[in-house]
């Protein structure tokens, strides 16, 4: 079965909505050490899953972007948007985006059962957290930036069940980014 792999940037205080410090994050991220870890993983993905908020932000930006190699990747792979409220989705002039509605497991499991490479989730923290909680996420790759953001949406919510994970890969860069990759414990 295909794996679903989430990639997120997070501050040390767990914030994933990092608009206030995005310039700093971009500067720390735009290095061979971080991107050299990220892009080989993206190359193993041939589909992308997005939450509503990230989809709405990105559908305005990426179809016309020339920021490579991510622009070509995101514009060319089939994309699936999970949303309970949208009625239609579009991606520039392309026809490779599909809306998934209804029950999360019923929407995602058939995708995982299709043949193919990994399915990447980029951004989309609400979806990532929901998938982690219902055991649909296979891998969580967090880039932890050396900043206390202080405010902004956090990845992990209060009032959830305890989930044990395994740290399967780790790397720190010379400018202080810790890249930690976890797999939920299948026990």
């Amino acid at each position: 079965m295909r794996k679903v792999i989430a990639h997120l940037f997070m501050s040390l205080d767990g914030v994933v909505k990092l608009d206030a410090v995005i310039d700093t994050i971009v500067k720390l991220r735009d290095t061979e050490e971080v991107l050299g870890d990220f892009f080989p993983k993206v190359a193993e993905e041939d589909a992308m899953l997005l939450g509503r908020v990230t989809y709405q932000e990105w559908a305005d930006y990426w179809p016309n972007s020339t920021v490579e190699p991510f622009a070509s990747h995101i514009n060319n792979v089939p994309k699936y948007v999970f949303s309970k409220t949208l009625d239609r989705v579009a991606w520039g002039k392309r026809e490779n985006v599909t809306l998934l509605k209804g029950n999360l497991a019923e929407a995602i499991v058939p995708l995982k059962q299709q043949p193919g490479k990994n399915i990447g989730i980029h951004g989309s923290p609400t979806l990532v957290e929901a998938m982690l909680q219902v055991d649909l996420l296979d891998e969580l790759r967090l880039e932890i930036y050396p900043v206390i953001a202080g405010s902004g949406a956090r990845l992990f919510k209060d009032g959830r069940a305890l989930k044990r994970l395994q740290l399967v890969d780790s790397k720190t860069t010379s400018n202080g980014v810790a890249i930690l990759t976890y797999q939920p414990d299948k026990k």
């Binding site: 959830r160 989930k163 740290l167 202080g176």
Partner: peptide, 23 residues
């Protein structure tokens, strides 16, 4: 620790000041 605890007191709170640290 490699665990999502799901509830309990956290170190960082909303409203902290933005701060850059060095790893």
């Amino acid at each position: 620790h490699p665990v999502v605890v799901g509830r309990g007191k956290r170190l960082f709170k909303d409203g902290d000041e933005l701060k850059m640290l060095k790893l």
